Amino acid sequence: MLMQRVLTALVLLPLLLALVWFAPTPWLYLALSAVGLVMAWEWTAFMRLTAPLQRAGYLLLTAAVLALVWFSPINGPGLTTALIPVVLIWLIVPLRFRGFPANGAVSTPLMVVAGQLMIASTLLSIAALHALPNGPIKLLFVFFLVFAADTGAYFAGRRFGKHKLAPNISPGKTVEGAIGGLVLCALWGGVAGSFAFGLHSPGAIALMVVLSLIVAVASIIGDLTESMLKRAVGLKDSGHILPGHGGILDRVDSIVAAAPTMLLGLRLCGLV
């Protein structure tokens, strides 16, 4: 299993880095839209849709939404306003964690809408970050911020973890691990963030550190939300497309919450 995970990462990471670094933003969005369709297919399992026609219909809906939002005013100045309710939803999702599993199930109509919001907001946010001046560096900063949250949580959790963060949802995660992830994200935000976004004043750097911490919290929420939804329907993994890793949603569950939160925060704070 470990060798599969390593080999898959060795193949996918260079492809992702090359795509971010060399592809124009429209081509990046197009490539990620293909990933979005896989996410949509996996999401249908969370909705307990098993009929091929139902799942195919949701894919067609996703493709139409992704095309529509790309050519709409939302993909521009309107994106800031559109992201406000999306980020607020992410920040209030933890209210469902405490009552899980009693309140873990979500109605199918709500899941239909939630999936479209999640996929479209994630891909548009990634594209908008990529389209900024020196966008590839800024986008990679966000990706590695999420990686820092996971890495810090893993090592701090192994060394100091005693108190469960959400035992009914993800028994392996601890409060101490989450704190370790936040500390590493604060360091990454202060050092790498000041470089990626060209920040020089102490106030701007402090603002970036605070925003990085908020984004790190959002990434944890995204991870726990996917775990909650999987447990609600009895899934171990969201899919099997990535050997050793599971599905696409298993790998991007943190990014789907982190990317919109980062873009909205950057715009509201005047950092871009």
Rank of each mutant, 00 (worst) to 15 (best):
L53D: 15
R159D: 05
A128W: 09
S212D: 00
A131N: 15
P52K: 02
V112C: 15
P85K: 15
A258V: 13
Q4V: 11
T122V: 09
V191Y: 11
F147Y: 14
A156M: 00
V183I: 02
E226A: 10
G203W: 12
A45F: 01
M39P: 14
Y29P: 01
T151C: 12
S219W: 11
E176K: 07
A259D: 12
V210H: 01
G115V: 04
L17G: 10
V191G: 04
V215S: 01
L129H: 05
T80C: 12
V11C: 10
W188C: 06
L15Y: 03
L2K: 06
S107I: 10
T151R: 09
A56L: 11
E176S: 00
G198H: 06
S194P: 13
L140I: 07
P243Y: 10
P171N: 15
H163K: 08
L264T: 12
R251M: 08
W188N: 00
W27K: 07
L184I: 11
I221R: 15
H245Q: 04
R48Y: 01
G161S: 00
A82P: 09
L145S: 12
G115L: 10
A257S: 02
N134F: 07
L15E: 10
L17T: 06
F143L: 08
G104S: 00
N75Y: 13
L182A: 08
N103C: 14
V112A: 15
A9T: 09
W21R: 13
G270M: 01
G198T: 01
C269R: 09
P202R: 02
L124Y: 08
H163E: 12
P109E: 02
L68C: 07
P133W: 08
S219D: 07
L182N: 04
K230C: 00
G78C: 05
I255R: 09
L132V: 08
T8C: 11
S219C: 06
L187V: 03
L59V: 03
L61M: 10
L213V: 04
C185H: 00
M118D: 15
G177A: 04
V87Q: 04
F46T: 00
I255H: 08
L79S: 08
